[in-house]
Write a protein that binds this DNA or RNA. Structure first.
Lengths: 204, 204
DNA sequence: CAACCAACCAAGCAATTGCTTGGTAGGGTA
DNA sequence: TACCCTACCAAGCAATTGCTTGGTTGGTTG
């Protein structure tokens, strides 16, 4: 492993650079639409040279998705393990999600667009596993919220989970890092809608 | 055009059958992952025979998406043109969307998964146009709702539109026609969350 | 019956694709 | 100097892919 003079691991190895380039291509054009020649050209090398770093195109998406998921779920676990109240935890989970879109838009897009097809292959079975994990996280958060009285008691937790998950992740399709709205702003607005709804409150 | 004995147009021409088969394949495996041989095999014919009905694989998605969009936007326009109040129109638009997922799950899935990539090609420029139309519909509904006092005045209409659009359509990824929840039920639950939020109301 | 036609088959071509192989340039190290 | 190792090139192979072409079949119609 290459290291800088001061002993810290070098921030971006060639391998990581290539992975980032591949991720961008996969995200914008789709996995199957992206050829290894595309990736190589974007990196300024020949297609064959990619196989010095990776043993297949499949390995590239695999590694991209794996590292991304590992980081994301680490953050979810941290929230679950904290001692904040139920509503705060829910809000944090939403914020973390939007922050992830901000920091890893390509990775999220790939996951969003390709997970369904790729999940069919044995190699990507962990995607389904992560899906179950994700569901467990959100369901826990929601049930805790109901139990604590922070969320409506009649809530269809399963449906609510799906709506949250969908809305949060699909935002990657339109959210642009560095754009007019910050991820914090978007998360805050979304939480307002989710928690209080869009209807005007009746005077009671 | 083939016609039944009683003079009505035959409900499903061979062409329509093949389109339906192709749509299913595109939806489940993705456009690029689906080969013409896959489609042909699913139809019980050889791949070359498909070219008696269509002149390219591209034409197949094109036709699938075009007819789907035409029907959908026809229904949106009908709602806009009606004389119901703002809130009712918004609810109807949501209901129509979930009903569309129920009736044309494959078409919605294709649109959801492939529109982004395909939109880059000139042939599919109408997808972007339809996107603008869709935005116009929802923004109108939301602004009318705010104006009528049915929706909160401080609403970020643009963000709200995106959240609605995303959540509604992405449901195609998990909604199963004929499953435990009817599309009417899902629409009703979703509207509750959207309009009133998931937070418990404070006693005031 | 003769003509026609929609629907299909059989075979294969040309381009693209992921990937392999053998070799080379150049910087670091003993 | 001799060696090694990372990163790359040049060339091309084998499989897959979308699509073409010429021909066959079976039903319908004048």
């Amino acid at each position: 492993m290459p290291e800088a003079a001061d002993g810290r691991a070098q921030t971006t190895s060639r391998r990581e650079q290539l992975l980032a380039i591949a991720a961008e291509q996969f995200a914008t054009k789709g996995y199957k639409f992206t050829t290894v020649r595309d990736i190589a050209e974007a990196a300024g090398i020949l297609s064959g040279s990619l196989y010095h770093h990776f043993d297949s195109k499949e390995s590239m998406v695999d590694e991209v998705l794996r590292t991304f998921q590992a980081e994301l779920f680490g953050r979810y676990e941290a929230i679950l393990a904290s001692d904040a109240d139920a509503r705060t935890k829910l809000e944090q989970a939403v914020e973390v999600s939007f922050e992830t879109i901000d920091r890893h838009p390509h990775e999220v897009a790939i996951f969003q667009n390709e997970a369904a097809h790729l999940g069919a292959f044995e190699r990507f079975a962990y995607l389904a596993e992560r899906n179950r994990e994700s569901r467990a996280v959100w369901i826990t958060l929601l049930e805790d919220g109901v139990r604590a009285g922070a969320l409506r008691a009649e809530l269809d937790v399963e449906l609510t989970y799906r709506f949250i998950r969908d809305t949060v992740w699909v935002a990657v399709a339109w959210y642009r890092p560095g754009g007019r709205r910050s991820h914090t702003e978007v998360a805050r607005q979304y939480l307002t809608i989710l928690l209080d709804g869009i209807a005007a409150r009746e005077e009671s």
